[in-house]
Nucleic acid binder design. Structure first.
Lengths: 344, 344
DNA sequence: ATCAGGCGTGTAATCGATTCCACGAGGGGC
DNA sequence: GCCCCTCGTGGAATCGATTACACGCCTGAT
């Protein structure tokens, strides 16, 4: 593969001049520029990004560590992050943690070894030393979706509390009183916050949230299934199950179907995160939609600000309840929630 | 950030010795080794992958350019690729083409600039010069899922023909005669092959495939919707629509629902690619499942063989029909297809 | 006692870029 | 006519690793 030396030889100039042409430095004669460009073309030369990074100490690359690449919410996030980064001249390297802290740490370490310019993380756990070290070590970093409390790192996320309150109001209005939740890992902020928001909303309606109605999940389908199986074998099963993410909702649906129960007649189901398939499930699922695209853009903006020395902005965007039929009522013209499709 | 020089100074040895310890070169005294390790620990030193790559001319990184990161089939593929690569000591950088050739080329170029050791591609079009150049230029490369004919590059893919024949047989048995297909772009192998397999299978049953029953899609949901709208407004609409990927099936479902039609009573629907949600759509969708995990593993194996100088192996794995209720019959004990869930 | 050979180590070249510095040529002001 | 400044250019240092080569020391064979 041709190097800058070959180009220099071909064009009859020094490597310094070639470099200047390539980086559009002003002080190059039109003649030299033409010859260099011709040589580049003739040799099909492409600058070696590795060598360039070593010298300049920047890679123009962002790392993105997501919790689970099989979760449509995170792939949508990844897509918008990559798009926003590309618009700013950055590449993105994605690391998939599969909800496993040690895999997350592996990716963080690998990305740091590659000397990425900045890191976008949705932490799988509450306090990975790997991540904390990186943050203290001065690596530009932004948390997205989930975050680690007590660390001085900007956070870009959606606030689900109002939407959860809307959801509980909706369920209460439909006459449901026994409401259960499949929680995410307590070590994640989204895992605990959604439970807290749910508990708080129930309190406002004077409803209890017994321990038996809190299923411990890990944001994966299998755990949603297990938790639901336990709910269904309770002496007093819940009227409605609220899954804290879309994969656990899938698992819940599996379990419900296995029992031969119908949604929403026998039991209601709602989920955090809205995905296109929820429109076509049986029945269409009521869900809380996050503004994924805007989250990705805001996260990139904050991270690039940090990298380039501008003050970064933490951002909290609202999530939105999307009512469908899985809790007992189709969306009607009387409903305050108009849209059936979320704006993913 | 500490460099190898700092470690050498701290340990009181030369950088050569540090490097030898780090690369477990045999010729290092136990004493030096201990001191170096201690220094590494004290400084929290991590080797700079950029510098190392420049020197050794290898990055231990694979590039993976997938057609669409929002398509669950490709994320499943990406996950298994990353897993297999990690097991062999390689990282993976994913590029998402969004089914756009120019975006695909952008990612191929960027990956090549980074001097990845090898490239896994699922080409979005039939003959990107970018890709062809790379292949001829000697970049180790393997096509996965889709390929470009006439290029000497190993291909790892699933053969859908038998499964499509099974599907058509199934549909014929149910009494369906007017069968339509939503095709992918003709420039992709999977786009044209699936139509051909379908056409061939219809011929075997003496059924025609009129042009009006071939919808031109692009593997995205919107195109599936458009094609289905056209089918439904035909004087003689088809009995069954077969979508060549899962996203177009989603679009088809949108269109059918919009018309107020029921599946399968008013019209049947089947899809290529099986995803977990198909079990819970209304109704559960009959689909052709690919062995995604095995495809990813085989692709990595072939690519790493190529990189490390062993002869690579092209692989073709069978796809499998999974019968559900969307074409008019639930899976029964008489059905030759036992499993309702695919082994994603 | 001598010498070959192996072992542990350090010096320095190298990978492919960027960039500081110096230098020569040319032009304008005095 | 001389000086200074600007402009275009090239030489060489540098980034952080790896590794060929040389060197000194110790051991064991002769």
């Amino acid at each position: 593969m041709a190097s800058i030396k070959d180009v220099a030889a071909e064009a009859g100039v020094s490597v310094a001049t070639v470099s200047r042409v390539l980086n559009s430095h002003p002080s190059v004669s039109p003649d030299a520029r033409t010859r260099v460009l011709a040589a580049v073309d003739a040799l099909g030369y492409r600058p070696n990004a590795v060598a360039r990074s070593l010298r300049t100490d920047q890679t123009r690359t962002l790392g993105l560590v997501i919790s689970d690449v099989l979760n449509p919410y995170f792939t949508a996030l990844a897509r918008s992050v990559e798009e926003a980064a590309r618009a700013l001249g950055y590449s993105v390297i994605i690391g998939n943690a599969d909800e496993r802290p040690e895999l997350q740490d592996h990716h963080v370490r690998t990305l740091l070894d590659r000397r990425i310019d900045g890191l976008l993380v949705s932490p799988t756990d509450g306090g990975s030393p790997q991540i904390l070290d990186a943050a203290r070590g001065g690596t530009p970093m932004v948390f997205v979706d989930r975050w680690i409390p007590g660390v001085d790192v900007p956070v870009v996320r959606a606030d689900g509390c109002p939407a959860v309150r809307d959801l509980v109001g909706h369920l209460h209005r439909l006459g449901h009183r026994r409401l259960a939740i499949i929680a995410g890992p307590a070590a994640t902020t989204t895992g605990s916050e959604r439970v807290e928001a749910f508990r708080e909303a129930l309190r406002e309606h004077g409803l209890p949230l017994p321990d038996a109605y809190i299923g411990q999940g890990d944001f994966q389908a299998a755990s949603g299934r297990r938790a639901t199986v336990r709910f269904l074998s309770l002496p007093e099963p819940p009227d409605v199950v609220f899954a804290a993410d879309n994969l656990m909702a899938l698992g819940a649906l599996d379990a419900i179907r296995e029992r031969g129960l119908r949604v929403p007649q026998d039991i209601g189901l709602a989920a955090f995160d809205d995905i296109p398939w929820f429109v076509h499930t049986d029945p269409p699922l009521t869900a809380i939609a996050q503004p994924t695209g805007e989250l990705g853009r805001a996260a990139v903006r904050a991270l690039v600000d940090l990298i380039e020395g501008r003050p970064p902005q933490s951002v909290t965007l609202p999530a939105r309840l999307v009512v469908r039929r899985s809790c007992g009522e189709g969306p009607s013209s009387h409903s305050p929630y108009q849209s059936q499709r979320s704006n993913l």
